[in-house]
Amino acid sequence: MPAPDRPLLTVEHLTMRFGGLVAVHDVSFTAAGRRITAIIGPNGAGKTTVFNCITGFYSPTVGRIVLHGGRGDFLLERMEGYLIAQKARVARTFQNIRLFPRMSVLENLLVAQHNALMRASGMSVLGLLGAAGFRHAEREAVDHARYWLDRTALADVADIDAGTLPYGAQRRLEIARAMCTRPALLCLDEPAAGLNHAESRDLNHLLRFIRDEHEIGVLLIEHDMSVVMEISDHVVVLDYGRKIAEGSPEAVRHSPDVIRAYLGEEEGEALPPEVTADLKGEGGAGAAHERGPAETQ
């Protein structure tokens, strides 16, 4: 691994409260460009909440989130959600897939290129008049969409409604849609959830491809340890809203705090073999699922 690039995203002292519940407590970490940074942790640890703060869906109670872009820094905690995507170029997917189900796959990808197309259509006026410049821009947008459709093996189904795709394809489409916005940082919330083994492997390829060929930073929430161990460059571990460990996958895997967080306090107890296997990244589904819904206090 080459030395880490300069940070792309810096999160400092992030705290998010919902009434009395502290979902995220004083979490700081950085994510580098051209690296895959994984955020892991048991259910309810606050992972999605961190994403929501980064992408502007929640405004954090305390904390600072900076995206170091090519043309200066963006203070994300101060920006409206849609501007974060538009200006700071942070794209994301959702834990419970959010496509435009009654629009075709290709349309989903064109909506992702909305702002560029909107400019090309002269705020719709040129578009209504059928100007050549707009038609050209639209062809380019379709080509760009086509590129990601090919990468995600969705070109064949480009014209059917997104909502009718099988689950795995919907997950891929959501990633393709996020990539169509030409992001600097891609945030993926459990992209491997519900995928079978082969799909999960393909996903790993895709994420590596995105990191290496498109040179963007990837922030990844994942339960599936095999995915995390295999592809991430850097891992942040959350438990009950706090960061309990950070480092390379290798280091995190052996951290006693992490093992305790995942397996409970009684370390001495004999663990079921499949759980230990999961934790070591040999099994399929994530060990954290075993724990049931955690009530964060």
Partner: peptide
């Protein structure tokens, strides 16, 4: 279809 997804795409 989905306003939240739209916001995440910069609309």
């Amino acid at each position: 279809e989905d306003e939240i997804a739209c916001r995440s795409l910069g609309i």
